[in-house]
Design a protein around this nucleic acid. Sequence first.
DNA 1: CTAGACCTTGACGCTGACGTCAACGCAACG
DNA 2: CGTTGCGTTGACGTCAGCGTCAAGGTCTAG
Lengths: 130, 130
Amino acid sequence: MRIGELAKRAGTSTRTLRYYESRGLLPARRSVNGYRVYGDDDLRLVEQIRTLQDFGFGLEETRPFVECLRAGHPSGDSCPASLEVYRDKLAELDALLDRLREVRAQVSARLAQAEAQAPPEPEPRCQLRG
Amino acid sequence: MRIGELAKRAGTSTRTLRYYESRGLLPARRSVNGYRVYGDDDLRLVEQIRTLQDFGFGLEETRPFVECLRAGHPSGDSCPASLEVYRDKLAELDALLDRLREVRAQVSARLAQAEAQAPPEPEPRCQLRG
DNA sequence: CTAGACCTTGACGCTGACGTCAACGCAACG
DNA sequence: CGTTGCGTTGACGTCAGCGTCAAGGTCTAG
């Protein structure tokens, strides 16, 4: 399979795949004319990357998963390094969630305060006369 | 007060203040020699911006607050436009929190699954013999 | 033979909020 | 008079993950 087909099958762009290759994820064999050639393994590999990216992982953080897959393991998280990334990301998510909850509370409080100061427009009633 | 002092008092950099000016927040009078000159109002203005930025507001989102302050209101959120931004940001925060909670659950589940597959190192016991 | 669809590399653009450097002016101190 | 420390504008660099364009090579169908 060539890069266009892989991109289509993975639901991404050729530019993205070439970018992954430039980062050392997703190496590709070349056919005689220089075209990149991929196998079905590579599709699974790209899907792994995309899934993690959707979770908010940076590309570098997907590397252990990718290398795990390329090492022949059935899934990208079958290796200790991947589990470490999971755990780090969980801690990061927890910290972020805490921060965002705190911010939400602050913003909410300030909104309430400001609304109390100068009350909102009193809900137009749509009466004919009044 | 000149830009260096304002920066120090606001806990930021001169570059940041010039950037705010370039974005139309924080206009400055000029002294004879071309130096920017600020008053205490401007300090409050910068503090307002920084507070909102710490909450994750983009610079553009701070504009209503800044204009509200410059219009003479006692606080930046005394104006309807600011309240609108608060409300939008709350909705945005709620959506983001939902997404992050979902991601957290997914990552947590995958971690548990992978740990069950290939259990972690069995907690070294520090025995002399065993 | 040629049009069109695919592929190649290389390079610049984008977003946000600045950091950092260059090259210069101005002011005060000794 | 020179140095030091402020100020000025302008312009390029940073981070991530690509998008987009340019200029060209390759392969296939008509």
